[in-house]
């Protein structure tokens, strides 16, 4: 909107010049909002019942929709279900959080990665032992020891 268009004084002068005729500003038409009322099935059913849609013009999807309706109604104002989205955690996350530096993953390889092996080892040892924190520390130390002997970057010593 330009300044001149919104200016009350300019509008008034224009009205005065044009003998009291005020041109309304061009407002675009709002368009249809039919898609917000009901579903495509209910709207088509209404058209068929009222006789606006003759029998030979019933859309092809109508009978299929009737036989296999979707699980949830495709309505615009369908309220969302009251579902609580949970956070996903696993017991081995404790170990994962302690690892300071992760290895670089090769996305093309299908072999089990070093950290996956570590997690598997942890899960297996966890069954027989009760002290989690000690176990994690031991595992990380052994891992870093292996890394140092191989002289490759791995888990940082704590």
């Amino acid at each position: 909107m330009s300044v001149i268009r919104n200016n009350a004084l300019v509008r008034r002068i224009r009205k005065h010049i044009s003998d009291g005729y005020e041109r309304k500003p061009d407002v675009p038409t709002p368009g249809t909002r039919f898609h917000k009322l009901g579903t495509i099935f209910s709207r088509t059913t209404g058209l068929i019942k009222s006789g606006a849609l003759p029998a030979e013009e019933i859309p092809r999807w109508y009978s299929v929709f009737k036989a296999f309706p979707p699980k949830y109604e495709p309505r615009f104002n369908r309220p969302p279900l009251d579902v609580v989205v949970k956070e996903i955690y696993y017991p081995e996350d404790k170990l994962r959080a302690k690892i300071k530096r992760w290895e670089t993953f090769d996305l093309k390889s299908t072999k089990t990665s070093q950290s996956e092996k570590l997690v598997a080892k942890y899960l297996e040892m966890r069954k027989s032992r009760d002290d989690d924190d000690k176990l994690i520390e031991e595992l990380l130390q052994s891992q870093s020891g292996d890394r140092n002997s191989q002289s490759s970057p791995g888990v940082v010593k704590t």
């Binding site: 039919f34 898609h35 929709f65 979707p70 495709p74 615009f76």
Partner: peptide, 24 residues
């Protein structure tokens, strides 16, 4: 498509609204 009563099948990701899609 909803205005013209055409059914839609759509892959809806977590940041999209599934309401108007017939078979989300």
């Amino acid at each position: 498509a909803a205005k013209l009563n055409i059914p839609t099948i759509a892959i809806v990701d977590s940041n999209c609204s599934p309401n108007l899609v017939t078979y989300p």
